[in-house]
């Protein structure tokens, strides 16, 4: 695990300057019910081990597991919520993400803590009012093992002279 300083309560993120490289913050928890897992997967990822508890028992997972996209969506809810809570004035858009790892499956009843570490903040060379933030997001289970992680990228405007 990283030795980066870590802030316990999520603070709102409104502008580029609110992201400090090297800081690590707990965003909150995500949890899964069987009903949620099946409902999401019926819409987006109807593989048997995501929608059929009986079939899932015979699968390599040995039981119902959430779609990896469902786990990602729940992580993104915490990330997005932090920006919206800050007023969302600085948020522009995300150009994408890298290195998404589904290390362990999410099962009904699972509760994971989600952490965000700011890797870099790079002012735009062509557009001085904004910059690119790169963060590593991790969902961690009760045993301390990482179950899912990804490197997210997002453009934010600079606060500049704004109050």
């Amino acid at each position: 695990m990283t030795a980066a300083p870590h802030v316990e309560s999520p603070s709102p993120r409104d502008w580029l300057e609110d992201f400090v490289p090297g800081t690590r913050e707990r965003l909150g928890t995500i949890s899964f019910t069987a009903g949620e897992i099946v409902a999401f997967a019926r819409q987006f990822d109807p593989q048997a081990f995501h929608i059929d508890a009986e079939a899932a028992k015979a699968s390599p997972f040995g039981g119902l597991v959430a779609s990896g996209w469902h786990t990602l969506a729940k992580i993104m809810r915490l990330v997005s919520g932090r920006s919206v809570a800050g007023g969302g004035r600085g948020f522009i858009a995300s150009p994408g993400f890298e290195d998404l790892r589904w290390i362990k499956p999410s099962r009904p009843g699972d509760v994971f803590e989600v952490f965000a570490e700011v890797i870099s903040v790079t002012p735009s060379a062509s557009k001085p009012d904004r910059g690119l933030i790169v963060q590593r997001f991790e969902a961690i289970d009760a045993e301390g093992a990482t179950v899912c992680s990804l490197t997210g990228k997002v453009f934010f405007k600079r606060r500049g002279d704004r109050a």
């Binding site: 858009a93 994408g96 290195d99 998404l100 589904w102």
Partner: peptide, 17 residues
């Protein structure tokens, strides 16, 4: 995928919007 012998994915290298 539903008619394949997919065993799932370990992850995604990159997504670009």
């Amino acid at each position: 995928m539903l008619r394949s012998a997919s065993r799932g994915s370990p992850g995604i290298d990159e997504v670009r919007y």
